[in-house]
Design a protein around this nucleic acid. Structure first.
Length: 349
DNA sequence: TGTATTTGACCTTA
DNA sequence: TAAGGTCAAATACA
């Protein structure tokens, strides 16, 4: 088991370093050409992310081997959750890893990890709904012994891109402001591997791929729907506290871009590692920098960002046998400088 | 009219 | 066999 962990870490480390090198080469080419600033920024962020991942692995793996899943998560690899060594599900995960690119439809074999998110209803916004992917709700079920039903979501692009990622969302019995989100399967869709950021301005839309327009307007519409639904849900929740199941919007492009309509509100959200990924840079947008000031708690598998000054939730999941991953942190956009320099030079010192 | 959500029925798993 | 998970028809919405 230890060997597997080491192999995984070594492979990941090498992979990240190679990727960083390749990206640096690309950047060099772009620097010599008349490539757009956008492209260069994208590459810079990718490079930073790759090296951060590598450093995280070195740094964290050296002290507490055997928790590769957390590393994967913190390294921005949500779609490739790795088993926690020694967990009852480790065999399943080994299997999963072997056919990583071929996610089985069988529930049993899908990689699974859980996060908890806290909902803030103070400002009419509830944040954890977005993890950077588009989801479509396909079911809801009352769970035995649970106060609230569980909602089932699958990737919007299941049919078009054969992406079999799913997630389950359930409100905590003890604390209705907390939602437990269980992800299953990895995203193989385009949005997951290369998140599509929203455009910064109408002009930019025009510059982009014409096919983008439809997608962009769709995401903008999703954002509007998201805001609307948030208001409704928050009002209901504030009024009743025992309301019918809170429903996450099934499709929402991502809070990696915050519209003016909501950026005055305190946003408490959960960010899947996709937010850490540099694959979604858009200089003119609010975007989470390449995860500065991440800290780890090796004892609790906790991953946290110092951005979160308000809510860090315990990582313990009610899930009995599946590996649990804590990815919970909140973000107040007002505290983020959109022009954050992405300087991580002193990050790990 | 196309897409997303709801919800009862059916399937799978433990 | 019960509970959880998924399907798919009906419905809602833009």
């Amino acid at each position: 088991m230890e060997d597997n962990s080491m192999n995984w870490e070594q492979k990941t480390l090498i992979s990240e370093l190679i990727q960083g090198m390749e990206l640096a080469k690309q950047l060099r080419v772009h620097l010599r050409s008349a490539s757009s600033l956008e492209t260069k920024d994208l590459l810079v962020q990718k490079i930073l992310s790759s090296y951060e991942k590598a450093l995280l692995i070195l740094r964290w793996g050296g002290g507490s081997m055997g928790q590769p899943q957390s590393i994967a998560a913190t390294a921005g690899v949500p779609e490739s959750p790795i088993s926690i060594n020694g967990s009852p599900r480790s065999e399943d995960f080994d299997k999963d890893n072997h056919d990583c690119g071929d996610v089985s439809k069988k529930r049993k074999t899908l990689p699974k990890w859980t996060s908890q998110v806290k909902v803030s209803s103070e400002n009419g916004l509830e944040g954890p709904h977005d993890d950077g992917y588009s989801w479509r709700k396909y079911g809801q079920k009352d769970i035995l012994g649970a106060k609230y039903p569980r909602s089932y979501y699958r990737c919007t692009y299941r049919n078009t891109q054969n992406c079999w990622a799913t997630k389950q969302v359930q409100r905590s019995d003890d604390n209705p402001t907390i939602f437990e989100i269980t992800h299953k399967g990895k995203h193989t869709c385009f949005q997951g591997n290369q998140s599509v950021p929203l455009p910064a301005s109408p002009e930019k839309q025009e510059q982009k791929n014409p096919n983008h327009d439809k997608q962009i307007s769709h995401q903008q519409q999703q954002l509007l729907n998201f805001q609307k639904e948030l208001r409704v849900n928050t009002e209901e929740f504030n009024n009743t506290q025992t309301q019918p199941p809170f429903s996450f919007p099934s499709t929402f492009g991502g809070i990696r871009s915050i519209s003016p309509a909501i950026d005055n509100s305190s946003l408490v959200g959960s960010f899947s590692p996709s937010y850490i990924s540099p694959a979604t840079p858009e200089p003119n947008y609010f975007s989470l920098p390449a995860c500065p000031m991440i800290s780890f708690d090796g004892n609790h598998n906790a991953y946290r960002s110092e951005y979160d000054s308000t809510e860090i939730l315990s990582a313990n999941s009610s899930s009995t046998s599946s590996p649990v991953l804590d990815l919970v942190f909140s973000l107040n956009p007002l505290e983020i400088d959109p022009n954050f320099p992405f300087d991580t030079s002193g990050f790990f010192s």
